[in-house]
Design a protein around this nucleic acid. Sequence first.
DNA 1: CAGTCTTCTCAGCGTCGTCTCAGCGCCGGA
DNA 2: TCCGGCGCTGAGACGACGCTGAGAAGACTG
Lengths: 213, 213
Amino acid sequence: MAAALQRGLQAEGFAVDLAHDGEEGLYAARQGDYDVVVLDIMLPRLSGYNVCKQLRAEENWVPILMLSAKDGEYDMADGLDLGADDYLTKPFSYVVLVARLRALMRRDAGRRPAVLVAGDLSLDPARRKVEREGNAVELTPREFALLEYLMRRRDEVVSKSEILEHVWDTFDTDPNVVEVYVGYLRRKIDAPFGRNALQTVRGAGYRLAGDGG
Amino acid sequence: MAAALQRGLQAEGFAVDLAHDGEEGLYAARQGDYDVVVLDIMLPRLSGYNVCKQLRAEENWVPILMLSAKDGEYDMADGLDLGADDYLTKPFSYVVLVARLRALMRRDAGRRPAVLVAGDLSLDPARRKVEREGNAVELTPREFALLEYLMRRRDEVVSKSEILEHVWDTFDTDPNVVEVYVGYLRRKIDAPFGRNALQTVRGAGYRLAGDGG
DNA sequence: CAGTCTTCTCAGCGTCGTCTCAGCGCCGGA
DNA sequence: TCCGGCGCTGAGACGACGCTGAGAAGACTG
C-alpha cells in the first residue's frame, strides 16, 4: 500500500521519500526537512505511535498525518494527543488523504512565506537572491545558507551550536567558523548600508533583527 | 448544540466565546486573539465556508476546525481546501472533537515558546529579551539565566543554594556570588524604575514578586 | 592546467563578563 | 544598646569570548 501511495502522490507532483519501518522513518524525519509526514501506526520495529511521540519529544514539529486500521474513536484521540496533527482511519478515501495533506502543507506555507523579509532586507530561497534597500547582494552558498537560517528565526537568539548543526550539519566543529562567516555577512549586508541587523549576543549567540537593524 | 458544546468545553477548562451567526463569528475572530476557532458550516447570515475563506483572505491564520452535517467526502475536501485546518462530520464524537482541538492548539504552542511575565516585567527566553514598562533591558548571560530562574519560580522564596545549583550548576561555590548578581539585576530592572521586584528574605533567600514589585 | 572563488584554520588582540575580596551597613536578638 | 551575623557593594584581577587579517587547502571553471 505504501508503494501505491508513493506512486499516486508523485503523480500529483509531490516529492516522496518512503521508509519501510519505524526506525528508518524516524531517522528520515530527523534528517530531512519535510513539509509533511504520513505515518502508519502498524510498522515493523517501531510503531507509528512511538515515532510520533519520539519526534515531538525532540521538539520536531513537522506536520504528521497518522494512518490506522483501527477505528475506535479513542485510538484516534490517542493519536492526536501524542502530537499528530491529523488522523485517518483505513479504509480511507484517497481524495480525502490528498486534501488533508494539502491542508497541512498550506498551513505551514502560510507561516513560511516564500520570501523572507526583515525590514528592507529580503531573501528569496527559491531564486537564491538577497536584496538590501532594493540592491542585489552577492553571497556565497555558505553565506546564503547562514543568512537564510537566521532569517527564518528572525528576532530569536540562535546559538553557534544550533547554527553549526543546521547550516554546517555538524556539531563538533570549531565555532570560530561561525564567527568568521557572520563577519563576512556583516561586511556584505550591514556595513555598506550603515546598518546593524546581525547582532551579537555575547555568551548566547546571534540575533537577526526583524526590522533589518 | 452550540450552547451544549460551550458548556462542555468550559467544563474542560477552555475559555469559550460563542457567536450565533456567521457575521458575528467573523467579527469575533478578527478581534479576539483566539487559540482555535470551531466553525459550523450551516450558519445564518454568512456560511462557515465564507467565514473561513474571508479570514484566510485577510491573512488570518488562526487554526480553524470545521463542523458539518454533510458527509460526502468531497465536502470535507472542499472545507480543507478553503483553508480550514481540520474537519469533523456530524454526528461527531465529543472525545474526538476535544482531542483535535488540543492537537490544533498544541501545534501552535510549539512554535511560540512561552514568555515569562511578572507585572510589567517580561522575559522572552527565545528572543533573549527582557523588558520593563516596555523598555528593553540589556543583561549579561549570567544575569539573564538568574532572572529567568527566578521568574520561573515567581512568588516563591528561592534559597541561594538552589540558585547556585540551577544557575551556576555547582553547589560548593561561595554564595556571595549570588548576592553580587542579585545586586547587578536590581540595578538594571528595579532601581531605574523605582521598583522592588527582587526581594530579600533574610536567612532564606530571594523572592521575585509576581506583580513586578 | 591555470586562475579564481570558496571554505576553513589559526593566532593575536581588545573587550566584556565573571568572580573574589574586603569593608561596611543593616537587621534582629539578647 | 550592644553585638554578631547576614547581606550589599565597589574595586580589581583574571579569563573567556568574539572579531579580524592572513593564508592554506580544496572546488570549480574555462
